[in-house]
Simulated assay, not measured.
Amino acid sequence: MNIIVFGAGGRTGQEVVKQALGEGHHVTAFVRTPSKLTIKHPNLASLKGNTLDEQAVWKGVEGHDAVISCLGTDGLKKSTALAKSTENIVKAMKDHEIKRIAYTASAGIHNEIPGVTGVMAGVILRNVLADHKRAYELLKESNLKWTVARPLRLDSDPVTRKYRTTDEGVPSKGKRIARADVAHFLLKAVTEDTFVSKSVGLAY
């Protein structure tokens, strides 16, 4: 499969690239700063660009079978960058007749985190969650084969492949998940049909 990864220079994005290459896929890493991506592989191409640039995204998406978005934010301020980037990606996918996309959001976009933790996340991350939620809504309206990942707190532990998923809320008593396992899920989401048209909570 030919996969383009947006946000490939980030910590989750690099895990996606590494695991996708390990599974034998051809990967295009779409990055603002190519030097952040230190992985070298004959099946890896690096493409410098900004997801807010509609034309750059359109050119990048061409020729791929699936899209994985690991885009993040630059801070906690109010922004529409994730939604605008997703809008550009969706348009490019439709133009090039590409159906599969997995998007990395965050637990909390549906106000699904219980208790005090959920209240705090809703306050501190309100701008980030709002941007992710709009991106989710764009995907839901798109008629693409989309999956949204909603991981709880991310850490840098090795991949386990033993995480829990849920279509409603977040996994019971879950608190965290490794970026490597989020990457594992994202690849499953674009290579299998199990999670099509689902917003999925992830945790151990």
Rank of each mutant, 00 (worst) to 15 (best):
residue 88 N to F: 02
residue 29 A to T: 11
residue 75 G to E: 11
residue 154 L to Q: 09
residue 119 V to C: 14
residue 76 L to F: 15
residue 55 Q to N: 12
residue 115 G to R: 06
residue 94 K to V: 04
residue 40 K to F: 00
residue 127 N to T: 12
residue 93 M to E: 01
residue 60 G to Q: 07
residue 114 P to D: 12
residue 137 E to C: 11
residue 151 P to S: 05
residue 115 G to H: 05
residue 42 P to I: 09
residue 104 T to L: 14
residue 106 S to C: 03
residue 28 T to L: 12
residue 133 K to A: 10
residue 69 S to V: 00
residue 138 L to D: 01
residue 138 L to M: 03
residue 39 I to K: 05
residue 44 L to I: 06
residue 84 K to Y: 07
residue 122 G to Q: 11
residue 124 I to C: 10
residue 73 T to R: 04
residue 59 K to F: 04
residue 146 W to G: 00
residue 76 L to A: 06
residue 110 H to Y: 11
residue 68 I to C: 13
residue 31 V to R: 02
residue 70 C to V: 09
residue 40 K to T: 14
residue 70 C to Q: 06
residue 116 V to D: 06
residue 120 M to R: 12
residue 44 L to P: 03
residue 112 E to D: 13
residue 31 V to K: 05
residue 95 D to Y: 07
residue 74 D to N: 15
residue 91 K to V: 01
residue 34 P to Q: 04
residue 44 L to M: 11
residue 114 P to L: 09
residue 77 K to Q: 12
residue 95 D to C: 03
residue 31 V to S: 00
residue 49 G to N: 10
residue 50 N to F: 08
residue 67 V to E: 07
residue 39 I to M: 06
residue 138 L to F: 05
residue 130 A to V: 06
residue 40 K to C: 02
residue 106 S to H: 03
residue 152 L to E: 02
residue 146 W to T: 01
residue 131 D to Y: 06
residue 56 A to G: 10
residue 62 E to Y: 04
residue 99 K to V: 04
residue 79 S to M: 14
residue 122 G to A: 03
residue 154 L to W: 02
residue 62 E to W: 06
residue 39 I to L: 11
residue 138 L to T: 00
residue 129 L to Q: 01
residue 142 S to F: 11
residue 137 E to M: 12
residue 66 A to F: 08
residue 59 K to L: 14
residue 153 R to I: 12
residue 46 S to D: 00
residue 107 A to M: 07
residue 41 H to C: 11
residue 61 V to A: 13
residue 41 H to S: 09
residue 66 A to M: 15
residue 80 T to F: 12
residue 119 V to R: 14
residue 114 P to V: 07
residue 137 E to S: 14
residue 68 I to F: 15
residue 29 A to H: 10
residue 149 A to D: 15
residue 90 V to E: 04
residue 54 E to S: 09
residue 124 I to V: 15
residue 45 A to T: 15
residue 64 H to V: 12
residue 123 V to T: 14
residue 100 R to P: 05
residue 54 E to W: 02
residue 133 K to W: 06
residue 55 Q to P: 12
residue 58 W to C: 07
residue 51 T to N: 06
